[in-house]
């Protein structure tokens, strides 16, 4: 356990070094929030009657979504770099579990983003954009739980893509296509309730809505009390399924690992 804590600490310190990336993360998120708010403002301008509530909800949705995206950003090429450079063989010789190692590395990054990126961004959002508070204290704690689960769904989904680098070596294309799917199907850019029914029906069969859509809806208090448990369960189920797939692939990958040089 101590070892993994050290890994997390190291990745935290690594993140601090790249100062420009740090600013870029915050500014990108704020610009995205800004652009989207003005688009929705333009949409709701004409429908004055419903403007008040609807507009505030959508603004809050957008802010929470982009802040979550910022915190959930992961180093997509961590494993790929190890595989291509051959360093992976060193890692596998060490008396550690590689999966836990990768996970603790990512946790370090999350802590960094929460402390140093999320905090300034949320302060700006509260003052500039009129962020609505959480529905209630109880719902806020549900939201925190659901957000953690959302992160784990995304993490386990990502892991499957990352591990494919054992076969493909270059995963830029796969990662980018996966990102595009997540952005649209998870409700990160536009709430699912505005999407056509057939698309929502399709999304319900995938893990995507468990990443952003469920936590944000919980934050907004749109999930009735009696349905919260089943929503959280849905997230846990997907974590479990994706983790298992990842585990199978990981087993297969270690068997076929070919290191070119080192």
């Amino acid at each position: 356990m101590r070892v993994y804590l050290e890994f997390a600490k190291k990745s935290f310190q690594n993140s601090i070094v790249y100062r420009m990336d740090y600013f870029a993360g915050v500014i990108n998120a704020i610009v995205m929030i800004l652009v989207n708010i003005y688009i929705w403002k333009a949409i709701y301008e004409e429908e004055a009657a419903i403007e008040g509530v609807q507009f505030k909800i959508i603004v809050t949705y957008i802010i929470i979504s982009f802040l979550m995206q910022m915190v959930y950003m992961m180093d997509e090429y961590f494993i790929e770099n190890k595989v291509r450079s051959g360093l992976i063989s060193m890692d596998m010789l060490k008396p550690i579990h590689f999966r836990w190692y990768v996970f603790s590395y990512n946790i370090g990054t999350v802590v960094f983003r929460l402390l140093l990126q999320f905090t300034p961004a949320i302060i700006v959002s509260i003052f500039l954009f009129n962020l609505l508070g959480p529905f209630s204290v109880l719902y806020f704690s549900y939201f925190l739980l659901s957000a953690v689960l959302g992160y784990l769904v995304l993490y386990n989904l990502n892991f499957i893509v990352w591990i494919s680098s054992f076969w493909f070596y270059w995963t830029f294309s796969l990662v980018t296509i996966k990102d595009a799917a997540v952005m649209i199907l998870s409700g990160a850019m536009i709430p699912l309730w505005f999407m056509p029914e057939w698309l929502v029906d399709f999304i319900k069969l995938t893990p995507f809505d468990a990443i952003f859509y469920i936590p944000i809806r919980v934050y907004l208090g749109m999930v009735p009390e009696q349905e919260i448990l089943s929503a959280l369960f849905r997230q846990v189920m997907w974590i479990f399924i994706l983790f298992l797939i990842g585990q199978l692939l990981w087993k297969a990958a270690t068997k076929k690992l070919v290191v070119q040089g080192g």
């Binding site: 830029f172 980018t176 595009a180 952005m183």
Partner: peptide, 22 residues
């Protein structure tokens, strides 16, 4: 595949625009 990936990445905002406008 890189071409395809860039295509998909750029389509994100187009699809979002399409969904909002429908």
């Amino acid at each position: 595949f890189i071409t395809l990936a860039i295509f998909f990445r750029e389509m994100i905002s187009v699809v979002v625009m399409f969904l909002i406008l429908t």
